[in-house]
Simulated scan of single mutants.
Amino acid sequence: MNIDFKMLCNQVTAVGFVPRGVVKSVLDGLIDSLKTYMEIGASVSLGEFGTFRPSFGCKSQVEEGEVGADTLRNRKIIFTPGSLLKDMINKVSIQKLDTANKNNTVPPSSGGEGGGESPDPTL
């Protein structure tokens, strides 16, 4: 599953009771600020959420004078999750889905029209 930017803004709007335009503006500002600071080589901490930092690999050179911008490679951004996300991932429960058992359906309610209980969808 992939959550796009629009869905994320809508969810933050629903949870935070903030207008969608404000959420989008703040997230756009955050992205621009991350870009600004990482362009100068700085790491950016977002508190318990985590830290973004730029990373560059370089081809090995024999002489110091041979090192230059053209020898940089593997430019990437590294995200290190903070305590909030580390705690969340450690508490995630994982269950195996048994696709071989075709009898995984919930039986229909008994008792005729309107007289029975509805099946529990969580079972």
Results as ranks from 00 to 15, higher is better:
residue 69 A to T: 13
residue 69 A to S: 08
residue 69 A to P: 12
residue 69 A to V: 15
residue 69 A to I: 15
residue 70 D to Y: 08
residue 70 D to F: 06
residue 71 T to Y: 06
residue 71 T to D: 06
residue 71 T to I: 11
residue 71 T to P: 08
residue 71 T to E: 07
residue 71 T to V: 14
residue 72 L to A: 03
residue 72 L to N: 01
residue 73 R to H: 15
residue 73 R to P: 11
residue 73 R to C: 13
residue 74 N to C: 03
residue 74 N to V: 05
residue 75 R to L: 09
residue 75 R to T: 06
residue 76 K to F: 00
residue 76 K to P: 02
residue 76 K to Y: 00
residue 76 K to H: 01
residue 76 K to C: 02
residue 77 I to K: 01
residue 77 I to E: 00
residue 78 I to A: 03
residue 79 F to R: 02
residue 80 T to L: 05
residue 80 T to G: 06
residue 81 P to G: 04
residue 82 G to N: 01
residue 82 G to M: 01
residue 83 S to A: 14
residue 83 S to L: 10
residue 83 S to Q: 13
residue 83 S to R: 11
residue 84 L to D: 06
residue 84 L to Y: 08
residue 84 L to R: 04
residue 85 L to I: 15
residue 86 K to V: 12
residue 86 K to H: 09
residue 86 K to D: 09
residue 87 D to C: 05
residue 88 M to N: 06
residue 88 M to H: 12
residue 89 I to W: 04
residue 91 K to G: 10
residue 91 K to M: 08
residue 91 K to Y: 05
residue 91 K to P: 08
residue 92 V to S: 06
residue 92 V to D: 05
residue 94 I to K: 15
residue 94 I to H: 08
residue 95 Q to E: 08
residue 95 Q to V: 13
residue 95 Q to K: 14
residue 95 Q to P: 02
residue 95 Q to W: 10
residue 96 K to T: 14
residue 96 K to R: 11
residue 96 K to Y: 02
residue 97 L to H: 09
residue 97 L to Y: 13
residue 97 L to V: 13
residue 97 L to W: 05
residue 98 D to W: 02
residue 98 D to E: 06
residue 98 D to K: 06
residue 99 T to W: 01
residue 100 A to N: 09
residue 100 A to P: 04
residue 100 A to L: 10
residue 100 A to T: 12
residue 100 A to K: 14
residue 101 N to K: 07
residue 101 N to Y: 01
residue 101 N to L: 06
residue 101 N to S: 08
residue 101 N to V: 10
residue 102 K to R: 12
residue 102 K to M: 05
residue 103 N to Q: 11
residue 103 N to V: 07
residue 103 N to P: 08
residue 103 N to W: 03
residue 104 N to M: 11
residue 104 N to C: 12
residue 105 T to P: 01
residue 105 T to A: 14
residue 105 T to E: 13
residue 106 V to W: 03
residue 106 V to K: 14
residue 107 P to C: 04
residue 107 P to M: 02
residue 108 P to W: 09
residue 108 P to T: 07
residue 109 S to E: 07
residue 109 S to H: 13
residue 109 S to Y: 07
residue 109 S to Q: 11
residue 109 S to C: 14
residue 110 S to C: 10
residue 110 S to I: 11
residue 110 S to V: 15
residue 112 G to Y: 01
residue 112 G to S: 09
residue 113 E to Y: 13
residue 113 E to W: 12
residue 114 G to P: 00
residue 115 G to R: 09
residue 116 G to S: 03
residue 116 G to I: 00
residue 116 G to W: 02
residue 116 G to Q: 04
residue 117 E to G: 15
residue 117 E to V: 12
residue 117 E to T: 15
residue 117 E to W: 01
residue 117 E to Y: 08
residue 117 E to M: 09
residue 117 E to N: 15
residue 118 S to C: 15
residue 118 S to T: 14
residue 119 P to K: 00
residue 119 P to T: 02
residue 119 P to M: 05
residue 119 P to D: 03
residue 120 D to R: 01
residue 120 D to E: 05
residue 121 P to N: 00
residue 121 P to C: 00
residue 121 P to T: 01
residue 122 T to D: 04
residue 122 T to S: 10
residue 122 T to H: 09
residue 122 T to L: 04
residue 122 T to I: 02
residue 122 T to E: 06
residue 123 L to D: 12
residue 123 L to N: 11
residue 123 L to P: 01
